[in-house]
Design a binder for these strands. Structure first.
Length: 398
DNA sequence: CGCGTTTGACCCGCGC
DNA sequence: GCGCGGGTCAAACGCG
């Protein structure tokens, strides 16, 4: 990708402030900082216009106007002078319009470049995910390699240790046991007891969680023995029409064809969330609450939350109207979109920067979101692909 | 009879 | 140390 020659070399750093300030530069069109135009720049302000004057386009003003150091009174003006002045002002206005147009072009170019970079980032993420999936599937047959891969790729919670493998496992760094594995949570409006995600699940427990009259069901993936993926299904206590499905763990088997085919869509959605959270690195604020995934032809409320030492990426699909997926489930939506950062944990934990293994910094949240996606590509692919795809199919214009 | 679900007991981490 | 609550286990049960 090449830059316009105007921005090459030092000029670029001089006239393009840090990424976080570009919008300010754009808005502050008449700022006095604009003194730094390059001499050879085609978009530089005309030299005959005093630098302080080009802001004062009070063209409709009938009061005294200044030109240089001389104040011209209305009584001094003859018709010819008025004509000359109008003509001069018109030239100035035209030049400013031209300048404005060039700046718009520059801005458009910057926006396009930014969009292209975002797309590239999403694609790179996608490739990375597929690589990790291939690596994981190639070492599944060797428990020891699998264990090593797990220790490198995932951080396993002690509570989710697989007794089948852990019995023979080599002791791993204790730090890993204390940190919880990232989760992916999906909110969907449905009457069905469970969303169809293309995988086979076996229920192994049910429990009444405190503060929620609806029981929480625990499922384990049964597509392959030893698969560590589990999911929790629970109705939202504030709106029982909303089904909250939380996935945790990574599959040790190839995904169902349908889910695998749609994995890229999911990955892209996840990558978009990551990229959206990285666009403002200097901010202390959480990433945007609302991520408009126009490239996917839809709007997905993607968010990140962090509670009980467990980072969670949430995709809120309950905003879609009339979702009727192709399978057995019947989804009927709509309600006011629920708060994304719905728990106090997001404001408390994130602002406190309490992320294990990370120093309290603004990047910890971004890193956590990345970790949630990077460490569990199969999770995001398998668990979300079917769901998101169903939405996209049912709502092509959503 | 095999498989999946139910459900009470148990384990474990965390906060006080 | 204790209590609470989330998560898991496993025996009992139901269904095809």
């Amino acid at each position: 990708m090449s830059m316009p020659s105007t921005f090459d070399g030092d000029d670029e750093t001089q006239h393009w402030p840090a990424a976080g300030k570009r919008s300010i530069r754009e808005v502050d069109f008449f700022s006095s900082e604009r003194r730094g135009w390059p001499e050879d720049s085609a978009s530089a302000p005309p030299k005959e216009i005093p630098a302080h004057e080009d802001h004062k386009l009070a063209l409709l003003s009938v009061g005294p106007c200044e030109e240089g150091d001389k104040t011209i009174q209305p009584s001094d003006l003859h018709l010819s002078n008025t004509t000359m002045m109008n003509w001069s002002l018109k030239i100035k206005l035209d030049k400013l319009k031209d300048e404005n147009r060039k700046l718009r072009i520059m801005l458009d170019w910057a926006n396009q470049s930014y969009g292209a970079l975002q797309t590239q980032l999403a694609l790179l993420k996608q490739e990375e995910v597929l690589k990790l999936e291939n690596t994981a599937s190639s070492i599944d047959d060797d428990p020891r390699k699998s264990l090593i891969a797990h220790s490198c790729k995932n951080i396993r919670p002690a509570s989710l240790s697989d007794p089948e493998t852990d019995r023979d496992s080599i002791p791993i760094d204790k730090h890993e046991v204390s940190v919880r594995r990232p989760r992916v949570s999906i909110r969907a409006r449905t009457d069905a007891p469970m969303i169809s995600d293309g995988c086979q699940w076996r229920k192994y427990g049910q429990k009444l969680a405190k503060g929620n009259p609806c029981p929480r069901a625990y499922y384990r993936c049964t597509m392959r023995a030893g698969c560590s993926v589990r999911k929790q299904v629970q109705r939202c206590p504030r709106d029982e029409a909303v089904l909250v499905t939380t996935y945790e763990g990574s599959h040790n088997h190839p995904l169902p064809a349908a889910a695998a085919a749609l994995a890229t869509t999911t990955s892209a959605a996840a990558a978009m969330l990551v990229s959206s959270s990285t666009t403002n690195p200097s901010s202390n604020l959480p990433p945007p609450l609302f991520t408009d995934h126009q490239q996917l032809g839809t709007s997905i409320l993607a968010s990140y939350s962090y509670s009980s030492a467990c980072p969670t990426v949430t995709l809120d699909l309950s905003r879609f109207p009339s979702w009727n997926p192709p399978n057995t489930n019947c989804y009927s939506m709509m309600l006011p979109p629920p708060p994304v950062f719905n728990s106090s944990s997001i404001s408390h934990d994130l602002h406190d920067g309490q992320f294990p293994g990370h120093s309290p910094s603004t990047s910890s949240m971004t890193e956590a979101v990345k970790a949630a996606i990077d460490t569990d590509p199969s999770l995001t692919s398998a668990a979300l692909a079917m769901t998101i795809s169903s939405v996209l199919k049912a709502n092509p214009s959503a």
